[in-house]
């Protein structure tokens, strides 16, 4: 038995049910008030490759029925081990099968083109994209409008990739199909559902 090869797994949510419930409430609030940055209620230790925000979202939302796609920046052996042990989700190499995708602001975004957008009959069969950034900044950046936003709201992430906001603008044209976006840092979360429009 080779004990040294066993990756150093760490604990996930300490108090599973209340922690997941609190995080779920926060994700729900983030989705229903798009582009508003809010703190994560529970911050866990993270495996190499993933930030606390993505870990919290996956621990709360992902399960054995939701294949998770990891961008190369996030895809480490220990991250896979962690997700397999604590979440039980399949890790997929094929973007078109993903229910959740985790990427960073530095990731190559071409994989997004292949992510499932849902169908007209089943718009829920689309992927949710989790984008990791160093910082989520409110009240600056592009203006967002749509359901859950009274007039407009501004929101920006650190090191925004050039193609991100145009891509999200195109994405909202597909409604009711399209991708949903969750932005996370190590402490905060914000979301842009497909119904939110971007004004650049």
């Amino acid at each position: 038995m080779n004990l040294i090869m066993e990756p150093l797994l760490i604990e996930a949510f300490k108090d599973k049910v209340p922690n997941a419930t609190d995080t779920y409430r926060t994700v729900l609030d983030a989705m229903s008030r798009p582009a508003r940055v809010r703190p994560l209620p529970v911050i866990t230790g993270t495996p190499d490759g993933l930030r606390a925000g993505s870990v919290a979202v996956l621990l709360t939302l992902a399960d054995t029925d939701t294949p998770v796609w990891l961008a190369p920046e996030c895809d480490t052996a220990i991250a896979r081990e962690y997700l397999r042990f604590h979440v039980g989700c399949p890790i997929t190499e094929t973007p078109s099968q993903a229910a959740f995708a985790v990427m960073t602001t530095r990731s190559d975004s071409t994989a997004l083109e292949a992510m499932p957008l849902g169908t007209a009959e089943y718009p829920d069969r689309s992927a949710t994209i989790i984008v990791e950034s160093d910082d989520l900044i409110g009240n600056t950046g592009p203006r967002f409008t749509g359901p859950g936003i009274e007039h407009y709201r501004r929101f920006e992430i650190a090191e925004t990739p050039d193609d991100l906001w145009p891509r999200i603008a195109d994405n909202s044209l597909l409604f009711p199909r399209g991708l949903d976006w969750i932005f996370v840092s190590s402490t905060h979360i914000a979301a842009l559902p497909r119904s939110t429009k971007v004004e650049m």
Binding site: I10, E11, A12, D15, K16, H86
Partner: peptide, 8 residues
């Protein structure tokens, strides 16, 4: 030891 998964 460290607990990886609390007793459930």
């Amino acid at each position: 030891y460290d607990v990886l998964r609390q007793p459930e």
